[in-house]
Design a protein around this nucleic acid. Structure first.
Lengths: 205, 205
DNA sequence: ACAGGGACAGACAAGTCTGTCTCCATATCT
DNA sequence: AGATATGGAGACAGACTTGTCTGTCCCTGT
């Protein structure tokens, strides 16, 4: 076991991590790029290491297996895509909580138009591996985390039954993503319209 | 074997276990069973032939390659699942065209509760292979065929802008399927509620 | 009766995958 | 300086994958 944490604080000089690129970062960057675009089974370890300029031994020193890298990738995707790209951007675009909710589909609209649009990683992995697989389960957890963001916004907006609201809302999000993958770049507008009706019915009670 | 043909309306075609003589039928039956449950890349040719009791030479005599079998499987799935299990059943359950439209989500509700629920094959293959792959394109075609059924019902119901209606409706169908894959068996009810609002807004010209 | 086609069985080729291993260079710590 | 840890490059193993090929059997048409 690589036991180097037993030493005191900052026994490693600062230039050790400042000078070169961390191999873990390079691996994760390559994993994000390749897994997002071509799925899990569509990318092999050999391509992963050659694409990140890391040796195979180094790869397996930092990750016990491919599955562990996928788990790290999903975590990274949750931070980069879910939190920073979707939720934070939607909160930035709207003033009220309701506006921020609807802005999710405006962000989707821009996202759908991107040439490198690659659908939702968590849905992809869930369907690719199945709900029984550990990676499928992890994807389900991250999807429910997305639903948690929606539920939080619904509570801020004072909407009725926020958990049920978030589940219905999530149906619109996922459905529009699949439709966009089919080529319907206007799916975000259709989902946004239905989302507005959903808000109205959770407002009056 | 997986004993699930004993319970009620099975997802398998009636001749799945029957055509004991024709090798093509056996291959297609095994393909339907395995591809539906574990995806395309999750099932190899060797398992396919051993599961159907057909020799490898026989397999390749009838299908030039695995892709051709997948195309035949998608066609079979369109007939068995889309046409017979969903559309025909929904039309049977409702009296008016509007009732038949809403009945789609009632059929979904029963389908979601099945233990062998395996999500929508066309979505699975589309996300697994990508929109650029021939199999992904074929899946897109079959998905648009499903949308055609919805559009036809919308026209029978005299709804406004039936093509746009069908696209929005399809978002609800696909989104609820993903949610059901995550474990939300009540996704059909949520989608049905939103579907009702969609009908109302396409009724008033 | 006999020839031929279809099907079964399985070896085999060529390539893929994940994961382990060795060899060597380099950089830091004692 | 010597010891230790980390990195790159790549050979290697074993288990896959798709697809081809060689046999042997059986069933059917003439």
């Amino acid at each position: 076991m690589t036991a180097h944490e037993a030493a005191g604080p900052t026994l490693l000089p600062a230039n050790a991590m400042a000078g070169r690129d961390d191999p873990v970062d390079r691996i994760l960057a390559a994993a994000y790029e390749l897994f997002s675009r071509r799925g899990i089974r569509g990318v092999g370890v050999n391509e992963l290491i050659s694409s990140s300029g890391v040796s195979k031994a180094t790869f397996y020193r930092h990750f016990p297996g491919k599955n562990d890298l996928v788990l790290a990738f999903l975590e990274l995707r949750d931070q980069v895509w879910t939190a920073d790209l979707i939720v934070a951007e939607a909160r930035r675009r709207g003033n009220t909580a309701e506006e921020q909710l609807l802005a999710v589909f405006d962000v989707f609209g821009d996202w759908f138009k991107r040439t490198d649009f690659e659908a939702c990683t968590f849905i992809n992995v869930l369907l690719e591996m199945g709900p029984g697989h550990p990676l499928g389960q992890a994807s389900i957890d991250y999807l429910s985390k997305i639903r948690g963001h929606i539920q939080a916004l619904a509570e801020e907006a004072g909407l009725d039954r926020p958990e049920e609201f978030a589940r219905s809302w999530h149906i619109l999000m996922k459905g529009s993503i699949i439709s966009a993958t089919e080529g319907d770049t206007l799916a975000s507008r259709r989902a946004r319209q239905m989302a507005r009706w959903l808000i109205e019915h959770h407002r009056s009670l």
